[in-house]
């Protein structure tokens, strides 16, 4: 989808979030000098096009008690990576799953799956379930725990 200048103004106006007022789209319309119906129509269109993944809340998983955050990385046969990636991505405890390039010889892993747990034991149990699923197609894996958030601002867009 090609965003026009008005879409970009709308993106810019909502990058810190949706106004917490009873009529949030009206508040945006007023700020952008648009009709409320137009703001809502543009938002619907961006949702339909996937430019907006969803409108909603992003929980701080640390605050919810998911303090162990493990990036699990797997060295999986290239010709099976797509099918296995789909299966790993479909596990309910995997938040994101991607196929990414290897950097040999330092980095043999091509499948990345983020796993969250209340503690490391939980992350390790979940990681074992991924290992079971991958079976012989996997030659090795590691879990990279995050020990500190150095920056978390989310995405910033110009506009």
């Amino acid at each position: 989808m090609n965003l026009d200048a008005t879409d970009r103004r709308l993106v810019h106006a909502t990058q810190d979030g949706l106004p917490l007022t009873p009529r949030p789209y009206h508040a945006l319309a007023e700020r952008l000098n648009l009709e409320p119906a137009e703001v809502m129509a543009r938002m619907e269109k961006m949702l339909a096009a996937g430019v907006v993944r969803r409108i909603g809340a992003v929980p701080n998983h640390y605050a919810l008690g998911y303090t162990a955050n493990g990036m699990t990385v797997w060295d999986v046969d290239d010709d099976k990576a797509r099918e296995l990636g789909r299966q790993v991505g479909g596990l309910d405890f995997v938040s994101h799953c991607y196929r990414r390039p290897r950097h040999l010889p330092d980095w043999p892993y091509n499948l990345f799956a983020m796993v969250h747990g209340k503690d490391r034991t939980e992350v390790e149990e979940k990681s074992r379930r991924i290992a079971d699923l991958l079976g012989d197609a996997c030659r090795g894996h590691e879990i990279l725990y995050s020990s500190r958030i150095l920056k978390k601002t989310g995405l910033r867009f110009g506009g």
Binding site: V11, L20, R53, I55, A57, F157
Partner: peptide, 28 residues
């Protein structure tokens, strides 16, 4: 609901509330 959302954001239980954009679909 609005008051509780404000508090959840202020307490950092939520890091954000609003549209979640997909940068790649925007040309980024």
């Amino acid at each position: 609901l609005i008051a509780r959302l404000e508090k959840l954001l202020a307490d950092r239980v939520l890091t954000r509330f609003g549209p979640l954009y997909n940068a790649e679909r925007m040309g980024g």
